[in-house]
Design a protein around this nucleic acid. Structure first.
Lengths: 218, 218
DNA sequence: TAGATTGTTAATCGATTAACAATC
DNA sequence: TAGATTGTTAATCGATTAACAATC
């Protein structure tokens, strides 16, 4: 998964935050915002916000600021949220179900076309009117339905195999929730959500804080 | 949530990855590893790995490398995984249940002491032998049981209120899955898992790639 | 001892911040 | 016009990489 774009990942990962905050203040009826105001809301510096936005174009107007709705839409387009993505969810456990049931993703254009599992008790059932199929059928399903994104919600042991099936089916991107890194062909994009890494980071910070407080007492 | 430590977050967020990979190769019976070998496995440079580890002490031995088990334990201790943390899960939907059921967290020392929800149909039930209580009781429960970490799995609308209840109860840290940033007193640590930001980043990369491929054709 | 590999300093690279001219 | 705020360049800061002496 090599990138050739000039936009750094640091910038890219801030875009969804801009998008979210702009959506929020837009809903509150605010239709004009300066980089300084955005700075207060988002916690990024005004300078950084202007730099980030200018990677993609001059969306603002000197002396005025940015139009909230326009900027929201622009960033939405940059993120590709103006398009529809076909997804499959692999693993129909709690996590898989949580993702299928989370309607915000669907509203944002990510439509679950099929759910896959190995458990015969679940296969054949429907979740939110989406059928649960046997993983056996996954590769053909991905190919025949031109699925864009595969969402891996299986236990660690199965994720590499699933990643290969998805890749063989011609998947474009994988959103991986399994606590393991997967190996896929270069052309397949991967975004990992490693929950335990996030929790362990929190646990580190908790301990660091307690150590610092302890040492400050002496 | 200000930090006063000299260790940068960039380093901190790599620690769980080192820990995971060391656990994996340890299980495979490997008991010695060089920074160069770790580099191949993790994708970080050998230089960076040595730099990172030396923030915490000289765990290696010149001419030899690192002892896998020792380093695994050292990093575990740095992450605070040698301790037990009492947690509460707020929101007993699919996501909350997924976290309660994920036994790896418990194995790592994060013990769920209570689950909280507002839905009367769920209150009183048990998930994995852990009782589901009314959110009304959350603040007292946190205080009386000296809960360390509150895990917010509620919809967006409720997360700020829950964060305040947890803070009032004297929580030390919050792991927030709600798609919104929460405001808490300075002494409360917060780690966010913003799933939609992760998905939108993937969607950005997908579009960027398609744009680049399109432009290369001409 | 010779070879290997760390720990650590110095060099480089990239990202963030500051500053200000352009302009609405 | 005067004030505000962008777009953009230059300066700073921090993180990564390279290099190598120390030493097992």
């Amino acid at each position: 998964m090599e990138r050739f774009s000039s936009i750094s990942m640091a910038v890219v990962r801030r875009l969804p935050k801009y998008h979210r905050y702009l959506g929020e203040i837009g809903k509150r009826g605010i239709n004009r915002v300066s980089s300084q105001e955005l700075s207060k809301i988002t916690g990024f510096t005004a300078s950084q916000i202007r730099q980030d936005l200018n990677c993609f174009g001059g969306f603002g107007q000197q002396g005025y600021g940015y139009n909230v709705d326009d900027l929201y839409k622009e960033i939405g387009n940059i993120l590709g949220l103006n398009k529809i993505y076909k997804t499959v969810v692999v693993g129909a456990g709690n996590l898989g179900q949580a993702i299928v049931n989370y309607s915000f993703f669907e509203k944002s254009g990510f439509v679950t076309k099929g759910i896959f599992d190995t458990n015969p008790k679940i296969i054949g059932l429907s979740i939110k009117e989406i059928k649960v199929y046997d993983v056996e059928k996954l590769e053909d399903f991905v190919r025949e339905n031109a699925i864009d994104i595969g969402i891996i919600c299986t236990p660690r042991g199965q994720c590499q195999k699933v990643a290969e099936i998805l890749s063989n089916g011609g998947i474009k991107a994988i959103w991986n929730f399994a606590p393991s890194d997967i190996k896929v062909p270069d052309e397949v994009l991967v975004e990992n959500v490693h929950l335990s890494e996030s929790l362990f980071t929190l646990s580190y910070l908790l301990n660091e804080k307690e150590e610092l407080e302890k040492s400050r007492k002496f």
